[in-house]
Design a protein around this nucleic acid. Structure first.
Lengths: 358, 358
DNA sequence: CCTCCTTGTGGAATCGATTACATGGAGGAT
DNA sequence: ATCCTCCATGTAATCGATTCCACAAGGAGG
């Protein structure tokens, strides 16, 4: 593979001049410029990004560590991250942690070794020493979706509190009183936060949330199945299961089907995270939708700001309830007329661009 | 960030010795070794992969260029590729071409500039000059799923001919006679191949495949919708739509629903590529399943073979039909009793390890 | 006509590793 | 005791870029 030296020789100039031409440095004569360009063309020369990175200490690469690529939510996130990064001139290396802290550490270490310019993380756990250390020693970093409290790292996320309240309102309006939730790992912020929001909303309606109605999941389908089976084995099973992510909802659906029961007739089902497939399941599933694409883009913008020396901002967008038929009573014509205060005025600004600064 | 020089100074040895310790070179005294290790620990030193790559001309990185990350089939492929690569000590950079040749070229160029050790491609088109050039100039490369004919690059793929024949047998057995297909882009090998297999199977049953029953798609949901609408507008619409990938099947389902028709009562639907969600759609969709995970793993093995100087082998695995309810007549108890010759003896070797050498 | 500044260019240092080669000392064979 | 070998180690070249500095030529200004 041709190097800058070959180009210099071919063009009859020094490597310095070649470099200047390639980097658009002004001080190059038109003659030299054309000869260099011709040589580049003739040799099919492409600059070696590895060498360039070593010298400039910039890789123009972002690392993205997510907890589960197979989860459509994260897939979409990854896609929007890559798009926005490309628009800013960065590439992205994705690390799939598969909800395993050790794997997450492996990827963080690997990305750090490769000297990526910045790191986007959706932490699987409360934060390993490695990651905390990276944050402290000044690696540009941004948390997306999930985060670790007490660390000075900007967070880009969607707030689901209101949407959860809307959901509870919706369920209550349909006459459901015994509501259960499948929680995510307590170690993740989103895990505990969603349960908290649910508990609070229930309190507003004077509904209890017995311990038996809080299933412990790990954001994977199998755990959703297990938790749901436990619910169904209860002397008084819940009327509604709310899964705090889409895969656990899928597991719940499996468990319900395996019992020969049907949704929403025998039991209602709702999920956090809306994905295209929920429209096509049997029945279509009521879910809380995050502005996933905008989340990814905002995260990249924050990270690039940080990398390029501008002050990065935390961003909080809002999630919204999407009512379908999995909780009963298909409200055919007027799909979203709920007696909830949060349903009152449509937000002035589109929710997807709403920014709050921390 | 500490460099090897700092470690050398801390340990009171030369950089050469540090490097030797780090690379497990035998000729290092135990004393020096412990001192170096202590220094590494004290400084939290991690070797700079960029510098190492420059010197050794190896990045221990594989590039994977796929046509669409949002397609669950490719997501699963990407996941298995990353896993197997990691097991071999390689990282993976994924490029999402989004079915656009220019974007595909962008990623290939980018990966080449980063001097990845090898390239795994599922080509979106017939092959740009850039990619052909890379193949010729000796970049280790392997095609996975899709491929470009006439290029000397190993191919790892699943053969769907038999499964397609099984599908036609299944459909014919259910009484369907007017079968339509939504094809992928003609530029992709898998696109034309699947249509060919379908056409051939139809011929065996003496069924015609009129041009009007061949919809032109691009492996995206929207095109599946369009093609299906066109079918339904025909004076004599087909009784079955076979989508050659899962996203187009989704689009087809949309189009059918939009007409107020139901599957399989009004029209049957089948898809190439099986994905977890097909179990949960309404109705569950009959599909041809590829051994996706094994495909990804085999592709990595072939590529690593090529990189490390062993002769790489093309691999062809077999796809198989998974009957569900989207074509009618839920055959409850005995799920797969089809009157097809291909259903006769179970393969001696598990299909997932079946290798054919090209 | 001389000086000074600008512009274009090349030489060489540098980034952080690996590794060929040189060197010095210890130990074994004769 | 001498010589040879082998082991541990250091010095320095190298990978392919970028960039500081020096320098020459040419133009402007006095």
């Amino acid at each position: 593979m041709a190097s800058i030296k070959d180009v210099a020789a071919e063009a009859g100039v020094s490597v310095a001049t070649v470099s200047r031409v390639l980097n658009g440095h002004p001080s190059v004569s038109p003659g030299a410029r054309t000869r260099v360009l011709a040589a580049v063309d003739a040799l099919g020369y492409r600059p070696n990004a590895v060498a360039r990175s070593l010298r400039t200490d910039q890789t123009h690469t972002l690392g993205l560590v997510i907890s589960d690529v197979l989860n459509p939510y994260f897939t979409e996130l990854a896609r929007s991250v890559e798009e926005e990064a490309r628009a800013h001139g960065y590439s992205v290396i994705i690390g799939n942690a598969d909800e395993q802290p050790e794997l997450q550490d492996h990827h963080v270490r690997n990305l750090l070794d490769r000297r990526i310019d910045g790191l986007l993380v959706s932490p699987t756990d409360g934060g390993s020493p490695l990651m905390l250390d990276a944050a402290h020693t000044g690696t540009p970093m941004v948390f997306v979706d999930r985060w670790i409290p007490g660390v000075d790292v900007p967070v880009v996320r969607a707030d689901g509190r209101e949407a959860v309240r809307d959901l509870v309102t919706h369920l209550h309006g349909l006459g459901h009183r015994r509501l259960a939730i499948i929680a995510g790992p307590a170690a993740t912020m989103t895990g505990s936060e969603r349960v908290e929001a649910f508990r609070e909303a229930l309190r507003e309606y004077g509904l209890p949330l017995p311990d038996a109605y809080v299933g412990q999941g790990d954001f994977q389908a199998a755990s959703g199945r297990r938790a749901t089976e436990a619910f169904l084995n209860l002397p008084e099973p819940p009327e509604v299961v709310f899964a705090t992510d889409n895969l656990m909802a899928l597991g719940a659906l499996d468990a319900i089907r395996a019992r020969g029961m049907s949704v929403p007739h025998d039991i209602a089902l709702a999920a956090f995270d809306d994905i295209p497939w929920f429209v096509h399941t049997d029945p279509p599933i009521t879910a809380i939708a995050q502005p996933t694409g905008e989340l990814g883009r905002a995260a990249v913008r924050a990270l690039v700001d940080r990398i390029e020396g501008r002050p990065p901002q935390s961003v909080t967008l809002t999630a919204r309830l999407v009512v379908r038929r999995s909780c009963g009573e298909p409200q055919a014509a007027q799909p979203r007329t709920m007696p909830s205060r949060s349903m009152q005025p449509p937000p002035k600004q589109p929710p997807s661009t709403q920014r709050s600064i921390t």
